[in-house]
Every structure is written in C-alpha cells, then in structure tokens.
C-alpha cells in the first residue's frame, strides 16, 4: 500500500513536473517578425542608373527553456529586391524561403533569381545578420543577377547592404 502510494505520488510528481515545464516553455514562446528595407543605386555599363530596393523579413519562433536559453522552433528568412521602375513585378525574389535549423546556429543557402529577366546589370546584395563580431553574409553576383547568400547564427540586427553591381557585361562596381 505504501509502495503503491509512493509510486502514484512519483507518477503524479513527474506528470506535474512535465506539465509545469511545458507550461513554462509555452508561456515564454515568442514569435517575432523583423523587417528592414533599404534602397541602393547601381549603374550599368551604358551609364544608366538603376535602383534596387531590398526587403528583408525574418520570422522567428522560439521558446525560452527553463535554463533561460533560446531554443528556436522556426526561423525563416525572406528577402527580395526589386528594381525601381518595375513596381508591380518583383524582378528579384528569393526562391524558396528556407528555414534555419531549430538550434538557430546553422548556415543555410538562399537563392534569388531574376525572374523577369530585365536586369541589365547584376546587383550584389550583401546581407549580414548579427553584429560585426559574428558577421554572416549573403553575396550574389551571378549571371542575370542571380543572388545567393548564407545566413548563419544571428543576433537581432539586420543589415542588408548592396555593394556595387558587378556582373554580366554591365554592372559597375563602386
């Protein structure tokens, strides 16, 4: 009887503990979306200035564990750019949006392609997420403005920058 009571108490204690920990994790579940937009000029080799608007969104879902650590359940980065003058058709878009691994520390590769095939020059997009000590980057200068970038572990600063335009036979780098 005593043993049975002890066993039941133990089970109840365990279940209670599990529920409590779940409850605490769930109560600190976070869902954050960050946006950033920047504009850049670049020049093709005919001397025509083009504009690129770069948009970034990072959606993060994470829990705070009982030890106070951040545990990502999902991190999705979306980034796309469009050339000015082509407002209705984003000419650069990221396909497809990819996920970070759940620990948030894994690098991933993204690819954009110039869907509308209008870019007379490439645009080199460098994305950094994190502070200077932990720079992760994105770089794209492939033919037809195809862009790829790598995202690594991040803090909460998004800094898309575009450095020149250096591809095909047209882009001018500054």
């Amino acid at each position: 009887m005593k043993k049975q009571f002890l066993a039941k108490s133990l089970v109840a204690f365990c279940i209670g503990g599990i529920l409590a920990s779940q409850c605490c994790i769930n109560s600190s579940a976070k869902n954050i979306s960050k946006n950033k937009t920047k504009n850049y000029f670049f020049t093709d080799t005919s001397g025509a200035v083009m504009g690129a608007e770069v948009y970034m969104t990072i959606n993060e879902k994470y829990n705070i564990t009982s030890e106070g650590k951040v545990k990502y359940t999902s991190r999705t980065a979306y980034m796309w750019a469009r050339y000015t003058g082509n407002a209705n058709k984003p000419s650069l878009h990221m396909i497809p949006p990819r996920h970070f691994n759940s620990d948030g520390s894994v690098k991933n590769t993204f690819t954009w392609s110039n869907r509308d095939y209008i870019a007379p020059g490439g645009v080199n997009v460098v994305v950094s997420i994190g502070n200077d000590k932990n720079v992760t980057y994105a770089k794209g200068n492939k033919k037809y403005s195809q862009l790829s970038y790598t995202l690594g572990d991040s803090s909460y600063v998004l800094t898309p920058t575009v450095s020149g335009s250096c591809k095909l036979n047209l882009g001018v780098c500054y």
Partner: peptide, 16 residues
C-alpha cells in the same frame, strides 16, 4: 522612381 529614390534619405548610396 529613380528621382524619388534619390530624394529618399534611406537610400544608401545617393552619392552615385
């Protein structure tokens, strides 16, 4: 659009 972007202070490299 280019003119607007030129006038927009958030454009990063207006010097171009």
């Amino acid at each position: 659009n280019i003119k607007e972007m030129y006038a927009d202070p958030k454009t990063s490299n207006r010097e171009v």
